[in-house]
Nucleic acid binder design. Structure first.
Length: 714
RNA sequence: GGGCGUAUAGCUCAGUUGGUUAGAGCGCUGCGUUCACAUCGCAGAGGUCUCAGGUUCGAAUCCUGAUACGCCCACCA
């Protein structure tokens, strides 16, 4: 053995050894007890970031720990087709060639995406291998493969038959760049400095008098159909029912009363633009107001506005409108105002609320079963505070807009009769229209929200809808580990999908892991240049050191302010481990040992053996509580300061001063026993180096460490 | 507007149901290299536990309030 540990010489070799031995497969165990877990499938557009690395380490520790305990362990990997994200990547590529997806047409475009996927879609899986995750790669799934498509269609038809799917025209979040609807969860709000504009609406019967409304979007007045005030508002109460003249358009619109209006905001009077605002839409529905759409799907003003405004961007029209208002003496004042602007979570464009026909999944019953599962603790959250947060979301969950107008995704298995204009479900392309018997119906162009297919992951990963052995054996899974930003988007939806289709919750425990921040407490982000690339760390320090450094910083409750010096500490620890092992190997010479617990002969023997027993217990306790940082720190302290600093030094004396060969042997037995067990304890955390060393130990009846018996297992 | 999290050594964090002298890693200071490892060993310095009240024989820990930072949700146009 060399004096210094070099991860580069070891890690690739060891990983190949594990793969070749098929040790990641559940078949290595004959146990009836099983432990199953599915990876949160990373997007095919993704490349490994610290969040992935942290989550990979957490899951891998659990999986390796359970595997060594002898359980039948499966960890299913996969990748997600990531509809909008992937489509955007390919669109950007096309843009460089001066083309749009519409130039290519749908079919060619989708071909192009598949090509891209083939080339770049599995990069992230190779990156995960580099950190040493022990997924069963033979079970890898892709959320767009043929079998997965069948599952999506079946799930849809199930909901369809239950009557929970409906089509409705309503105001939805629309991304004019992606040209698709978005669910509420796919919109992000960002603070932006803007203005609040105060505009006069003259009364129809007395044009000298007016009511002042405040708005952040004056341009939408072109689509106003009312002015609303709170009926409790003394200032305006008596005005309800009267008519005002809509500026510029010169149309009469009513003043209506609505309790949704906040009297303390602005002037207490609101212009109502039902087609382009969620609150206004709600008010309009109650009062049967007309919906005038003035912004089209490209995000431009359409034909329903005066010709001089047609085709303009709303922001451009805004300037002109204000000017026009000023000229007409209808402009009262403006005020600085910070408001939240809605942005597309995939491309960051300004989201326009606009009326559109979309497919919705009714949430009432589904949310109820998920809520019950959480409240009855059939699914337990770690840390527990996330349970409450999930419940609160489920209690208020709106119906889910599941249709998207992009091309990359699972297409709706819904067809439309050309005669009767009605929709019907069909798994395959119908030869004849079942509704009119004459026409050749055409398939709805929409595809599913990516999260619709992701929601099915914990059982489709095992083969559903086929009744596979895996599904039988491994569903429900034991643990799901994920980031907090997809609790609503994904976790909650998996819970109700699992109950709906499998009759059981998809996982018993959910770990919501920390967010990895920069040392300054800022968000890690590629675009801001604040991200740290885990692959760079692996390159620089080795995978074990990287895992060590990440794991050291895991605490259940707190976010991580990432500290690279912990990775350095990991590297030093690996070297310590290496050299301590070198010492033990050198001092025990050629003899072979079994791993029976030795009988302590000296106080030092006794002490180290009892310390070992303690640290084993402590490690088990901490891992089962998902306190990975504490678990590792405990072993670290034991190994470095109790074993190396004290016992190894003591053992030198014991060997030197020994009077009989038996006494020497006894010390050697303790040395190798403690070392071997330390390697076992450390293996889930730093798998490569521990495996490498373990293979060098002269122990009889030894297995590869990855499937070796966990300390104190029978 | 509602909710949540955090505040402990120069930095990143532990601190179990309140109980002697508040811990770790890194960094820092001093000493030490033939004897597993200088990616090391030994010794050491360093803390008004954010602030203000309260409960208690006793508070980093429990309660109330304040301040700061961060996050989430929401229909203030």
């Amino acid at each position: 053995m060399k004096k210094q540990y070099n991860p580069k010489l070891v890690e690739k070799k060891i990983y190949k050894f594990w793969e070749k031995g098929k040790f990641f497969s559940p078949e290595v165990s004959k146990s009836k007890k099983r432990f199953s877990i599915v990876i949160p499938p990373p997007n095919i557009t993704g490349s490994l970031h610290m969040g992935h690395a942290l989550n990979a380490v957490i899951q891998d520790i659990l999986v390796r720990w359970k595997r060594m305990q002898g359980l039948k362990v499966v960890w299913v990997p996969g990748i997600d087709h990531a509809g909008i994200a992937t489509q955007n990547v390919v669109e950007r590529q096309l843009k460089k060639e001066g083309k749009t997806r519409f130039d290519l047409g749908k079919e060619k475009f989708i071909e192009r995406v598949w090509e891209w996927k083939k080339k770049s879609g599995t990069i992230i899986l190779d990156q995960l291998k580099q950190i040493g995750v022990s997924c069963d790669w033979s079970r890898t799934r892709f959320t767009m493969d043929k079998e997965y498509n069948k599952a999506v269609i079946l799930a849809f038809s199930h909901y369809f038959k239950k009557g929970w799917i409906y089509r409705d025209k309503r105001v939805v979040n629309w991304c004019p760049r992606c040209k698709t609807s978005l669910s509420d969860l796919e919109v992000e709000y960002k603070e932006k400095k803007g203005k609040l504009w105060f505009i006069r609406y003259r009364f129809a019967e007395n044009k000298k008098k007016f009511i002042v409304v405040a708005t952040t979007r004056p341009e939408t007045l072109l689509g106003d159909t009312a002015v609303a005030v709170n009926p409790k508002d003394q200032r305006y109460k008596n005005l309800i029912g009267r008519k005002v003249i809509l500026p510029i358009i010169e149309r009469e619109i009513p003043i209506i009363g609505s309790y949704l209006v906040d009297p303390s905001f602005g002037t207490g009077a609101v212009k109502v633009t039902p087609a382009h605002d969620f609150l206004d839409y709600q008010i309009a529905k109650k009062h049967n107001l007309e919906l005038i759409q003035i912004i089209d799907e490209d995000g431009l003003l359409n034909r329903n506005v005066p010709s001089r405004y047609q085709g303009l961007k709303p922001q451009v029209a805004r300037e002109k409108i204000i000017e026009e208002l000023k000229n007409a003496d209808l402009f009262e004042k403006e005020k600085d105002y910070i408001h939240q602007v809605p942005l597309c979570y995939r491309c960051n464009s300004l989201v326009e609320p606009l009326p559109s026909e979309q497919w919705f999944l009714r949430m009432s019953d589904l949310a109820k079963v998920a809520l019950e599962a959480i409240e009855k603790k059939k699914v337990k959250f770690y840390p527990s505070r996330w349970a409450k947060i999930s419940s609160n979301w489920l209690k208020n969950a709106q119906d889910w807009c599941i249709s998207r107008q992009i091309w990359w995704g699972h297409q709706f298995p819904v067809w439309q009769c050309k005669e009767k204009r009605k929709f019907f479900f069909s798994q395959k392309k119908p030869k004849k229209c079942p509704l009119c018997g004459k026409c050749r119906p055409h398939q709805v162009e929409d595809v599913f929200d990516t999260w619709f297919s992701s929601a099915l992951w914990p059982f489709v990963a095992f083969g559903w809808p086929k009744k596979t052995k895996d599904l039988e054996e491994f569903y429900p899974t034991d643990v799901l580990s994920t980031a907090r930003d997809i609790i609503f988007l994904w976790v909650a939806r998996m819970i109700f999908s699992g109950i709906e289709f499998m009759g059981k919750v998809p996982f018993k425990k959910v770990i919501i892991h920390a967010t990895v921040l920069t040392k300054e407490g800022k968000r890690m982000s590629k675009s801001l240049g604040t991200g740290i690339d885990p692959l760079m760390l692996i390159e620089k320090y080795g995978a074990d050191a990287t895992r060590f450094g990440i794991c050291w910083q895991i605490s259940a409750l707190q976010d991580i302010r990432f500290d690279e010096t912990k990775i350095v500490a990991g590297k030093k620890f690996c070297n310590k481990l290496w050299n301590a092992s070198r010492f033990v190997l050198l001092s025990i010479g050629e003899e072979r040992f079994n791993l029976k617990k030795p009988k302590p002969k000296t106080p030092a023997d006794k002490k180290i053996l009892s310390e070992l027993a303690k640290v084993i217990k402590n490690t088990d306790k901490n891992i089962s509580k998902f306190e990975f940082g504490k678990a590792l720190q405990g072993i670290y302290h034991f190994f470095w300061h109790k074993f190396c600093d004290i016992y190894i030094e003591e053992s030198k004396k014991q060997i030197k001063n020994a009077k009989t060969k038996r006494e020497i042997k006894s010390t050697k037995e303790v040395l190798i026993y403690v070392l071997a067990n330390s390697l076992k304890l450390l293996h889930p955390f730093v798998p490569f180096i521990t495996e490498e060393i373990y293979q060098k130990l002269p122990i009889s009846n030894k297995k590869p460490l990855i499937i070796e018996k966990w300390p104190n297992q029978k």
